[in-house]
Design a protein around this nucleic acid. Structure first.
Lengths: 93, 93
DNA sequence: CATCGCACTTGCATTTTGCAAGTGTGGCGG
DNA sequence: CCGCCACACTTGCAAAATGCAAGTGCGATG
């Protein structure tokens, strides 16, 4: 399996890269991600769990039943790829 | 919709980026892609159609019922993003 | 003129994604 | 103390995407 295939195993699922893109701006809460991305709530929950297991992000508890999601170093390392893809997408007109 | 989301609309489907990665090496035939990627044949046919419609690649006829798939400039412009993602995936160990 | 390789298509099972409604928990006003 | 609210999910089910296996069409080749 190529390196690209390995990457896509982790961030190739729908919404995954979009979630990471949002978190590049800084830690955010579940509801923020939901509102900003318009992602279905069960998908968001599933992706956050997978991305946490993959070491891309961590949950950090704020107050009682509020927590924030923050990228790890590994997650932040996706910036270059996300920027490159974003630039390519911007030329889509 | 963000630039990233626009990009993922085109190359976010399963196998799409892997197909483009293969074609970065040069034009290839259907059977080559199938063997090298292990992609199901109906998915390959679907993706190639979509990527052609999106202007990422073109079919070029060789002999009777053989043709090659070749990236357009727009397709080749994905190299940077693919390399970046590949590098990230390579650190996956 | 039967057979082969190549590029697909088709039918159906499985998996993933999406929608809508419900659950649990702690804080807060009365 | 009690009902209500915000937040972060979970659950049940429908729809769409993906995968598997077998079949199709069509020139070249023997």
């Amino acid at each position: 399996m190529s390196d690209l295939a390995a990457a896509l195993k982790v961030v190739g699922a729908r919404w995954a890269l979009l979630i990471v893109e949002q978190l590049l701006e800084g830690p955010k809460r579940y509801g923020d991600l939901q509102r900003e991305l318009g992602v279905p709530t069960n998908m968001l929950a599933t992706r956050l769990r997978e991305l946490e297991e993959a070491g891309v992000l961590v949950r950090l508890p704020l107050r009682h039943n509020t927590r924030a999601y923050e990228l790890t170093d590994r997650g932040r390392a996706l910036r270059e790829a996300i920027v490159a893809l974003g630039r390519w997408g911007a030329d889509e007109r």
